[in-house]
């Protein structure tokens, strides 16, 4: 890739749009995942008693179980959301960039 091509791509509106949208999207999702996981780890490490509460009085099932399952499902759902948008919107933008700068 020569310097002229680099300059052309960097000035391309579709490229600027892709970079802005995808950059924000992937960092937001990353932060959401890190917050969910490290909040969970925080409670495991510092407040395990909170997680030991039963989900309803008289039950043995602790809230740690649905919370753990929630962390697992959130990882799958967040990944799915990213793939859905990237394989649609972002790939369309990427194709447009390739066509426009050739």
């Amino acid at each position: 890739m020569d310097d002229a091509m680099i300059a052309r791509i960097r000035a391309n509106p579709s490229y600027i749009e892709l970079k802005r949208k995808r950059g924000a999207f992937s960092w937001i999702l990353t932060v959401i995942m890190l917050v969910i996981y490290y909040t969970y780890i925080y409670f495991v490490a510092f407040e395990p008693g909170v997680l030991a509460e039963p989900i309803a009085s008289g039950d043995v099932t602790s809230i740690a179980i649905p919370i753990g399952i929630f962390v697992i499902l959130s990882a799958i759902v967040l990944t799915g959301i990213y793939v859905w948008r990237a394989n649609g919107e972002f790939d369309r933008l990427t194709r447009r960039i390739a066509e426009e700068v050739q």
Partner: peptide, 23 residues
Amino acid sequence: YDGLIYSIGFLVGWPIIMFLMAE
């Protein structure tokens, strides 16, 4: 329950790989 903590740790690396690295 501790087993689930390990499972979760093994799994949550995947979204990060997806968002920041895979493509």
